[in-house]
Write a protein that binds this DNA or RNA. Structure first.
Lengths: 208, 208, 208, 208
DNA sequence: CATGAATGAGAGTTCATTCAT
DNA sequence: AATGAATGAACTCTCATTCAT
């Protein structure tokens, strides 16, 4: 029998958990280095130094593995970002914290982010696949929308469409991920300042 | 002897040109409807009502076909956008015109844009593929950078990093393409107003 | 595109028809010689001297190929048997003709029969697969039942259960196929006499 | 060191014997319910509630397990059938007893029989496998042949070929197993009467 | 200009089996 | 006595591409 399965076994052995993480890490590495289409089970296994079968032993299949990868990076991202946002008090500070925390996370997890972006691009391209967005992404967006809505309610932000502004913020952040994928030497500190300033100007209420 | 080839044969017969366009159009349709991974040569051929072999006769291979697709949409986009930008006089108007023209083109060519976005996502992911960006995209960015630089030189725009602002504008615009791919009923007129306003506020010099 | 497909194309090219028959023949040969489980696509292709892909080009998949095999042998069998039964006039003669024609067909098509029997055994073992029986086999049985029923109605046959007798006749005949599969030197002429005599005695009305 | 092996270790511990029977029973259950091809080691282990490895610990391999299954059912069958035949005195009665005992055993052990039939079908199909027949089946047949030969010697049976008649009897009986596998509601009492009557008429000497 | 026939490479998955613990 | 972890072989199928016609 395999160690994975439809029915979640509540407890996974230590060694299994380690292998799963190792394999997910290999998937991230291969995707970041060679691109999503090149991330075949064979290459991932090779990178992990294990047999192809072992991946199918620990995961229900390719889809399951990729799904775990997304959950993995997503979860770590949320854990890094949310606390920082929560420490800020005013909406404007929260927005800046959101942007800063996101870009810091990108800076500290370049490969993971590159992999995530590429997977996301490939997944929402798929025919019938629900991808990861409907649940995860929209939940992330809502978090951002709330910050913006709070700012408008507090009279600190201008009268823009909250959803479109949130989408813009996310697109710019995600775009930085892509930049990172292309240029490994990108000065993320500078980028953070610029992006934060951009949206500071774009959101503040100037009484116009 | 084949009619395609890396080395551009200066003249292509009328019927050949027609076939090429027909096939590119089919590729666009299939990618837009079923996603990039599902866009196999077989399905594209089927949609075009021709044999698979014919695609290989008219194009040097899959890569060539996709490349032509990108060039095709890109070229049409540039032809629609540049003239509108040129009619505007001040940098702020030119920026607004750039955004408006882009989103109008997206609105009027939803399927082409969806296909382009999906291809781009898959391509910059590819291993050794040069993609289409290095040449095309950077050229497009430079056009945008010049608008912004002119605005700063004229003292109308604030002191932001020109490259990062240009990237942000493009990412927001490209993000709209993705939104269009997901939600076919998106109100693009509203989106255009919001995006234009966003970058108007983000770029203007407020003397701060 | 492949030459097979869900939608039956009414006309198949000559060369295609030839290839299909050749591949089916190879499948029969491999199954007869090495058994059904050993009849992988690879071995069938190898026996036919073609590539594995070609089988998938001409057939929709393994299932389709095996299905064609069954239909093929079944059809040839019916064409060999029915006419001979029809020339007989009395039910007893028709029953004898049925048995004789069946065993003659088995004798003349040993390998095909062996393959058919093995496939049938493997198929009706499969979990959800309808196999080939529901349609084909029951239709064959009904043919036999009619002969027996006619004999009873005409007062020539004893009062046995028609269905069970028909099943018995078929099982004995199919058993001979299995014997043939095991012992290639079986004297089928003798077997034919014995089986015919057996069912002659078993069916005739002795007024008991 | 494993507890199984080709070389029979004279004594098997109690617990080991219990495990072996449990596993064989699970194999029977899985084959009867899901068919032979679906009866993988994994599914058998799962049904038995043990690990896959344990099966390989108690048996020399898949082949060994299946072989034990056949021997198991075969042995139980012989133990149920032979005594009943031995109580009968005349050859005709013995033949009837043989048929009746066989069908009764089938009736009382439907699942085991279904599994046995399916395994047999798959096995005599196998490439190099000796199957179980050469030894077991022929021994069973010989038992039947002796009954028939005795009947002819005693002048009670007609002058048919003893081997072919024996084969026919077995095929009809085995065919009933297949019927049982297909139709769980089969009226076996009726079938027993019909089959017994069939071979009574087919074997008796009518002085023709 | 266009096609049908054919191929080879490679993908994901399943399975019986082994081995250290 | 029993297991979890791991493997290697094999299988079916898809796809871009080639070539003779």
């Amino acid at each position: 029998m395999s160690a994975n399965g439809q029915e979640r076994q509540p407890s996974r052995s230590f060694i299994e958990e380690a292998r799963r993480e190792q394999i997910v890490a290999s998937a991230i590495a291969v995707i970041a280095e060679h691109g999503y289409p090149a991330a075949t089970m064979g290459r991932i296994a090779q990178h992990a130094g294990v047999s192809r079968s072992l991946i199918n032993y620990h995961f229900a299949g390719r889809e399951d593995l990729i799904g775990q990868l997304v959950v993995d990076v997503f979860t770590r991202g949320a854990q890094a970002i949310v606390p920082r946002v929560e420490t800020a008090s005013t909406p404007a500070e929260r927005l800046a914290a959101y942007i800063g925390a996101n870009l810091d996370f990108i800076a500290g997890n370049r490969r993971d982010i590159v992999a995530l972006v590429r997977v996301a691009a490939a997944l929402d391209t798929a025919d019938g696949l629900p991808g990861v967005d409907p649940a995860g992404a929209d939940q992330g967006l809502e978090y951002l929308r709330r910050i913006l809505r709070d700012g408008q309610d507090a009279g600190q932000f201008a009268a823009f469409d909250v959803h479109q502004m949130a989408v813009a913020v996310r697109n710019v952040i995600d775009g930085v991920s892509t930049q990172v994928a292309t240029d490994p030497n990108l000065d993320l500190a500078m980028v953070t300042r610029e992006v934060a300033a951009l949206f500071h100007r774009a959101t503040r209420d100037t009484g116009e």
